[in-house]
């Protein structure tokens, strides 16, 4: 298309909002539909929002590229993929055991640290990306072929986990062997003993039936990652909108943050119950040794990213 930035003669704008999950029953979808609802209602149709559920990219990297070039206007991205754009600071939020509860997480991302992070993203990307709010993809737990009673039980277990450096290092230190398996192949991999275990949040792995496989039916609530997702808009495009349109978008984003989190929290309980009903075994574990192991890694990673001050703040807010 030409460079009209998506605005037509009468000043109305069209916003392409996209996430990477194809399942209709996903908190992302609830969040973006809320965004659409509020933006369209508040603007009396002056803003049109088109929601794409995986249709213009099931890879986050693709959505980030589209956000930059203008193929999408509002997208959802995880810290791991933001680091790919050269903004390494955001990976702070993906460090293992950084948060100890949703309350802690919300206090951090909705407070001063969240604001600082938003500034870093905006500055380092030259205004390509502007943060509209923090969503979550749930809290991640271990699930595998045996329940964990202590960290020693991880020794020698292969585990499907993210390929991001610090996370991989952390699991290596616990004794597990991080293994790369595509998400779409994981069900089979767990079923056929290609990997011994994996880690993810209830709504994600229960929807894929991983909890019904031999190597996925023991869930230990390690709670190692209260995940953060960035709701982003293209900053340059945002600046080209009228003041009124900007305010409406911010308001819609705020409503979407609330809707997404509510939906996720609700699904987390529902899918945990479903896992139990389907015969999976859930147990809790003393997280303290895991937390202790994570601390030096967090220190080192934060230092490398140059955000030791933010790490300290996050720890103080517990």
């Amino acid at each position: 298309g030409d460079k009209s930035e998506g605005s037509s003669g009468d000043g109305s704008i069209k916003i392409v909002a996209a996430h990477n999950q194809t399942s209709p029953e996903n908190p992302y979808q609830d969040g973006l539909l809320k965004f659409k609802e509020v933006a369209e209602a508040e603007s009396d149709g002056n803003i049109k929002v088109e929601v794409h559920a995986g249709t213009i990219g099931t890879e986050e990297s693709e959505l980030v590229e589209k956000l930059k070039t203008g193929g999408a206007d509002v997208v959802l991205v995880s810290p791991g993929f933001m680091t790919q754009t050269g903004i390494k600071e955001v990976n702070l939020l993906a460090l293992p055991y950084l948060f100890d509860s949703y309350e802690h997480w919300e206090k951090v991302v909705d407070g001063e640290v969240g604001d600082k992070m938003a500034n870093i993203i905006n500055e380092k990307s030259n205004n390509d990306f502007k943060l509209l709010g923090y969503w979550t993809a749930g809290v991640r737990h271990y699930y595998g072929k045996k329940p964990l009673q202590s960290m020693e039980d991880l020794e020698g277990l292969t585990m499907r986990t993210q390929t991001s450096g610090v996370v991989a290092n952390y699991w290596k230190q616990t004794g597990a062997i991080p293994t790369s398996v595509a998400w779409g192949e994981l069900y089979q991999a767990l079923q056929q003993d290609v990997v011994d275990s994996a880690e993810n949040a209830y709504p994600y792995f229960v929807q894929q039936n991983h909890h019904t496989t031999d190597n996925g039916k023991y869930i230990t609530e390690t709670g190692h990652d209260y995940t953060t997702r960035f709701l982003l808009v293209n900053g340059n495009k945002f600046d080209s909108y009228t003041k009124e349109q900007q305010e409406i978008i911010l308001k819609a984003a705020e409503a979407s943050v609330k809707a997404e989190r509510e939906s996720l929290y609700k699904q987390e309980e529902e899918y945990k119950q479903k896992a139990i009903d389907d015969g999976a075994k859930v147990n809790e574990i003393d997280r303290q040794p895991f937390i202790e192991l994570a601390k030096p890694l967090q220190d080192k990673a934060a230092k490398e990213m140059g955000v030791t001050d933010l790490l300290e703040k996050i720890r103080e807010m517990k």
Binding site: G1, E5, G6, K14, E59, T69, G71, D73, A182
Partner: peptide, 24 residues
């Protein structure tokens, strides 16, 4: 077709060509 849609940039074509192959 993409040139005809104002809000999609033309560079989507080379990008998508490469992304289409970016699969193990």
């Amino acid at each position: 077709g993409i040139m005809n849609i104002p809000y999609i940039p033309e560079m989507t074509v080379p990008m998508k060509m490469l992304n289409g192959l970016d699969s193990f």
